[in-house]
Each structure stands twice: as C-alpha cells, then as structure tokens.
Design a protein around this nucleic acid. Sequence first.
DNA 1: GCCAATATTTAGTCTCGCCTAAAGATTGAG
DNA 2: CTCAATCTTTAGGCGAGACTAAATATTGGC
Lengths: 260, 260
Amino acid sequence: MPARPTPPAAPPPLTEPVEDYLKAIYELETRSGAAATSDVAQALRVAPASVTGMIRRLATQGLLDHVPYRGVQLTDLGRRAALRTIRRHRILETYLTQVLGYAWDRVHDEAERLEHAASDDLIERMSAALGHPTADPHGAPIPTADGRVDERTHRTIADLAVGETVRMLRVSDKDPELLRYLAGIALQPGVEITLLSRAPFDGPLTLRVADGEPVVGSTLAAQVLIEPLPARNAQRAVTPTGDRNTTTDARPRSARKSAR
Amino acid sequence: MPARPTPPAAPPPLTEPVEDYLKAIYELETRSGAAATSDVAQALRVAPASVTGMIRRLATQGLLDHVPYRGVQLTDLGRRAALRTIRRHRILETYLTQVLGYAWDRVHDEAERLEHAASDDLIERMSAALGHPTADPHGAPIPTADGRVDERTHRTIADLAVGETVRMLRVSDKDPELLRYLAGIALQPGVEITLLSRAPFDGPLTLRVADGEPVVGSTLAAQVLIEPLPARNAQRAVTPTGDRNTTTDARPRSARKSAR
DNA sequence: GCCAATATTTAGTCTCGCCTAAAGATTGAG
DNA sequence: CTCAATCTTTAGGCGAGACTAAATATTGGC
Ligand SMILES: [Mn+2]
Ligand SMILES: [Mn+2]
Ligand SMILES: [Mn+2]
Ligand SMILES: [Mn+2]
C-alpha cells in the first residue's frame, strides 16, 4: 500500500465487540502464549465460526496477524488498543469499589460495559480521583495511559511450601462466586498468607490468613496469585534485573481498601 | 393478544439506538406536542427513511403507536423506557459535574453514551451519592425511578417585563458554545435575573445578574427558562392545583453548585 | 505412517441500523 | 379546487456480528 498523503487518517473508533475481542486475545496471548480460535470463542461465548470471521476483519485492519489454522497474534496497534481497554476496565473497577461502594464481585460486569462508553477524559479523571492506582480491586495491574503494564507471572497458593509466608497479590475477577467466598475467608489482595499444612494426594491446604485458618481445595489455591513478602532485612538492593515493568513499582501492589 | 401464561416474559433489553429514539420522541412529544418523522430524523442526525424503518419496529414491540403519514405516539411502555433513559442521562450529568469536576458544557456527550451502559444499581448509587438531586446541571428535572417528572412549561427571559426579577431555571444542554457563553456572564440555574431594559424591534436585552449587566440578544433570551421568585410574603398557600408533578417540589429547583 | 478425533474455516442466513433513490400522500397557495 | 412543494414511506442495498451446517486441516494414538 502507498504512503498516506493526508495526515488525518482518522482511525474509525473501535466498536464494542472489537474491543472485547482484542482484550480477550491479549489476555490469552499473555496467559497461554497463543490465542486459539476456540479459546477466543469460549472466552467471548461466541461460536468459533464467528471468531474466524471477526479475526479476518481485524487482520485487514492491521490489528492482528492471522495464519489460518495456526493462530493469531496482535500487532502493536492491536496490543495498544487492548491495553487501553484493559486500563479502562481496571480503573473503572477500582473507582466503583473505592468511591461508590461496590462489592468486588459486582464490578466486573459493570466495567465490561462502561469500558466502551467512557471517554479518555473520564477515565483519567477517575484515575486522578483515586490517586492514580496501580492495581485494581482484584490485584490486577493497571496499564499506564501509554500502554505499559507489569506482565510478570506469579506463583499461586498451590505452589507454597509448608510454613512459607507470602502476600496475596491477585485473583481473577471473572467468577463472582469465588470472589464472595474469598472475601468470606478474608482472602484479598495485600493480606499475608502462611501455608500451615497440606494434605497428601492433592488434598486441601490449611492456611493462616488474618486471624483465621481457612482450609481450601487445590483448585481454589491455584487461582490465587501471590508475591514474596518484601525482604525484611537481607538482600534489599537485589531487584530483579530483567524486569519489563516500567512503573517503578517497588511498593507492594494493592494497598487497596477492602472490597467489602 | 392472549393472556401471558408464563410470568418471565423476559423483555429483551433495549438497544442503544432504540433508547435514543425513544428519548428523542419523548422530548419532541412533550416539547412540540407531536413527533414528526423528519423531526426525529433531525434530532438523531439520521435519514428520514431510517426513522420510518425504526418506527415500524418500535410499533411492533409495543413501544409506540404509529399512524402512517400522521405521526407517532409513545405508549406507556415506551414513555417509561424514555423516562428511564432521561433519568440516567441527567443523573450522570449531575455526577460528572458535581463529583468529577466536569464543566457543564462537556457532560452531555459523555452522558449520551454512558446512559446506555450504566446499570440501574450504578445510577442509584450515583443519585444517592449526590443526595438524590431533582435537577441536572442545566436545570432539567430528573425523573424519579418510577417515571414521574415535572413537565410544566416555563417562561423565558424573552418573556420578561422590564423591571421584573426572576430566577433562572434551565437551559438546553445541547449547545456547548451557548453553555460556555452563559457561564461567562454568570447565567446559571438558580441565579436571580432582572430585566433592566429592552431595545425596541426585538433588540437586545440588558439584564442584571449577580453583579454584572450582560446584554443579550433575543435568540439567546428565548432559550433561557425562568421561574418566579418564591413568593416573598403574600399568597403562600396558593399552589397551582392542576399540577401534574408528583415530586412534591416546593423548593426552588437547582440549588446546584456552580457548573464551573 | 495412517486415520480418526479435534480444531478451524467456509458457505449460507439472519437481524439490526443505517443509506439513497423513487414513489406516494398531504397540504397550502392561489 | 387543484397542483406543486413538502413530508413520508417503500424499495433495494450494505456492513457488522452473530448463527448453523458442512467442508477441510491438523494432530496424536497406534
Ligand atoms: Mn467489554
Ligand atoms: Mn479486575
Ligand atoms: Mn444516548
Ligand atoms: Mn442536561
């Protein structure tokens, strides 16, 4: 294609379905390395054939590359669009819990719709009102306005050694039931967790969290992301070097208020 | 049509275009008595033929009655839907100005999109956070959750007699330029206005508002709605009887904060 | 290395909202 | 009363997004 002579190429704004596709593809790509047609279909509760159709359109718009039967990969353009929507989603979730008193299991659906309707101005005003938070109520990192985000992977409670103490970092916001249950046993981003014991044969784990000792199954345990406690005395200066993150984020993320 | 045997008739949620059509038709109906195809088309910036098509669909859904070539009238169902959207719009506008610091000329477009995405729960939380306001930043009355609203018509500055003092009530939120200009001369809902003089042949009007004496043309004057000052001493108890309004609204509407 | 199970794409439709062009209805001026 | 100007509706199309059913590609088990 030839060079573009007129600067105002006027990128037509992305539609709501397009934004949701890009977001889903981004999350599958970072989580599992690649985004298969059927995975996207499942994530968006749509027929696989619909995904194929949408993917072709997105490819012609330069938002992703598609090798038929092989999978899909976001272009820079597509990734930026995805991160913009994710930023909106997470700022909205944070605002709804912190300012408007939403329970943390109710914000996802609301943000899923508002993320497409709110202007950049509104999102930045909310972010400012919150003091520019770096994580949402579920502990998910909030991308910056210029599209940077902490993409490191993390251990889960299932990976803990008996006796180990860590800080809860994050949990998926997709399952309200799980979120309500976690809130009931005081598991929320920021709390300290110690693994007291682990039953054999993939059995339940007994934790210490706050002043309770909940017993959780391994399925739940694998869904709760953790981070090490900040080094209490020893090797302070040894910050990991290959850190892709740009938000100079030494502080323990999520000094969130309770999600009620 | 036969009786409905199964209670959960599951009314499919209205789409964004449908909500905007109903809102526009409602406003044309109350403002000018009827809603002509071309008026709706103009209000929504859409071709007249598109309006005819949409109207047919809305009629089959029982949201309005349509007599071809004669015009359109909302059913109770349609009117309730319109008022619900209008309530959302006005609460959102109020929240954006009061809580998030929006200028009053910027809220309309934002609310025009958010009104379709926000849940009832969110709207009611915003309303509660504002202390359940009864008017939006432009002085427009906010319908109640059960669909009641003050539909009285009002005089404008153009109707003032020289020397008369009244309170500004309301102005349309559709023209940001006008809103910015009004803010510049301190004309906002709630302020007292006195007509000092009126030039002949539909000429400019000199007002006293706050401590300024703006001179405005008759076009502008006709767009600014006013209400009488609360009776200072005399006939207190003589409230108008045929009042359709249900919100027991004796207070001067719009004790709004400044729209910045 | 083949072949059946699985994943993906193609083919063919559908509904919603919008458009333009053309036809039909209404109305007001004379 | 008539007819031209002004609505309004009809006819025909289009793109976005979804679906089902049918074809095709990939892959893993043997
Ligand atoms: Mn969404
Ligand atoms: Mn979240
Ligand atoms: Mn709208
Ligand atoms: Mn308004």
